[in-house]
Nucleic acid binder design. Structure first.
Length: 199
DNA sequence: CATTAGATCGTCT
DNA sequence: GACGATCTAATGA
């Protein structure tokens, strides 16, 4: 197989740095992952979809590691996670950014609004679009076609900070679970969670 | 570069 | 009924 599944049987916070530099392929496009965020289960992570236990949407997070957790948000976007932790325990790593290294033509066709090649997969929703990942792919095994995930041979150098777009308790400095590779232009710009209007 | 508004709908309370 | 693990286009410095 394309990756050691046992490596993913750990909490997402430990798996996240291992995914930096890994290559994810789907839909004729391959990209080198440069930015991720970790989300835990067990009720310890207020920013996680699994914070209040299992629901229909987050069921994949509770499944075996090495599968895809894809969800729909903001009425129009799909985001992709790599499921971590043993079967029955929920945690996942959100893939936030990457550099397209193969299938540039296909990626451009799906991302007609991208201003430049570096924007093709810069941001979680842009990334799923570039790869052609949809809700129907939720639960797919990333080690099997049409997917492939190959971890980097050498551990990547990385930086950490607060997670992007997470509001409430999970958005603070107590959860510095965003991981990215320094000097990579495909890392998405940090955005604070949108504050709700004054009344 | 920075900030802002608007789009848009499934999910959970 | 409110709120998103967001993006794009538009505007101003």
């Amino acid at each position: 197989m394309s990756f050691d599944r046992a490596l993913l049987e750990r909490p997402a916070t430990q798996v996240a740095p291992l995914l930096l530099g890994a290559v994810l392929s789907h839909g004729g496009v391959s990209l080198r992952i440069t930015e991720v965020e970790a989300y835990l289960g067990g009720g310890v992570d207020p920013g996680s979809h699994a914070f209040r236990g299992q629901t229909r949407r987050n069921a994949s997070m509770f499944g075996p590691p090495g599968r895809l957790y894809a969800y729909f948000t903001y009425g129009m976007h799909v985001c992709a996670n790599v499921v971590c932790s043993p079967d029955g325990e929920a945690s996942a790593v959100l893939i936030r950014g990457g550099e397209v290294i193969d299938g540039l033509a296909d990626a451009r066709l799906r991302r007609t609004s991208a201003a430049s090649d570096r924007d093709l997969a810069r941001g979680p929703a842009r990334l799923t679009l570039a790869l052609g990942i949809g809700l129907g792919d939720d639960g797919s095994d990333l080690a099997l076609p049409p997917f492939d995930l190959t971890l980097a041979a050498e551990p990547a150098e990385f930086l950490t900070g607060p997670r992007t777009g997470v509001s409430g308790e999970g958005g603070g400095a107590e959860f510095p679970w965003r991981f990215w590779m320094p000097r990579e232009t495909s890392v998405s710009p940090y955005r604070r969670a949108a504050p709700r209007p004054p009344k």
